[in-house]
């Protein structure tokens, strides 16, 4: 048995094990964002325009997600979803092994659900920074609502949403580490499994730490670049 505080060889080996969990972590992040972005935007619009029913539904959804820890949301959805689905499948005599489903699918659903609520608030405050006059001017030159949003409102809204979108994305990446609770083969789980063999938890945690740090710093940098590009029309003003 190695008596030194840190087993450097294990540290290095496990770093690559942890790294091999990155694709799954990123896949969950990207899929969750792809689903949550349109949902968050659409629900933000129902809040801003005070669309009856949907507006109320969105409020409840957002406070539910905000008011509960993600880990509990994961456990609840992970236990409730199969129950409901198996009921439905039974009803229609569909033979589907619901309890053998890859946890990846649950991760997609849970993290979309969670991030969607965050993005409602991100987009709601970002939309408020675009004055109603922008939309009206677009209407007045003959644009449809969809065209006005796509070409005028959304590009401006995104600029002010960028910092919060970055935070939401980084929080999402970090939250995928909770995927270990449903046996998702992501960074944390893989490194911990490797550590189980020789109880090298400290090394594993250091590796996990470093991998998330690299991921998050990279994402932050990418957002900075994107923000700069999107806000070109503002940056020029002071130049």
């Amino acid at each position: 048995m190695d008596s030194s505080l840190i087993n450097v060889e294990f540290l290095i080996d496990t770093f690559f094990v942890a790294l091999s969990g990155v694709p799954i972590a990123l896949l969950v992040t990207v899929v969750a964002l792809a689903i949550a972005l349109p949902i968050g935007f659409f629900l933000a619009l129902t809040r801003i325009n005070e669309i009856p029913v949907l507006n109320g539904f969105t409020k409840v959804y957002v406070s539910f997600v905000r008011g509960t820890p993600i880990i509990i949301q994961i456990f609840v959805l992970y236990s409730i979803l199969p129950l409901i689905l198996s009921r439905i499948f039974e009803q229609y005599n569909i033979d589907f092994p619901i309890y053998d489903v890859n946890p990846l699918w649950y991760a997609f659903i849970i993290f979309s659900f969670n991030t969607g609520a965050t993005l409602v608030e991100v987009f709601r405050s970002a939309l408020k920074t675009v004055s109603a006059g922008q939309l009206e001017a677009a209407y007045s030159v003959g644009l449809s609502t969809a065209q006005a949003y796509r070409r005028i409102v959304i590009p401006q809204m995104l600029v002010s949403a960028m910092p919060n979108l970055c935070t939401a994305t980084i929080n999402l990446i970090k939250a995928t580490s909770l995927g270990y609770a449903i046996s998702l083969q992501e960074i944390t789980l893989k490194a911990k499994v490797a550590a189980n063999v020789g109880y090298n938890y400290l090394e594993a945690y250091i590796d996990i730490f470093i991998v998330y740090l690299i991921l998050c710093i990279t994402v932050e940098y990418l957002f900075k670049v994107a923000e700069k590009r999107l806000s070109r029309y503002k940056a020029l003003a002071t130049a």
Binding site: A137, G142, I152
Partner: peptide, 24 residues
Amino acid sequence: FQNYNLFNNKTAIENVAEGLIIGR
């Protein structure tokens, strides 16, 4: 408009062209 309401994310010429290209 009283407060111009130019499209902030577009240049002067893009502002003018927008309604022609997209609207018309």
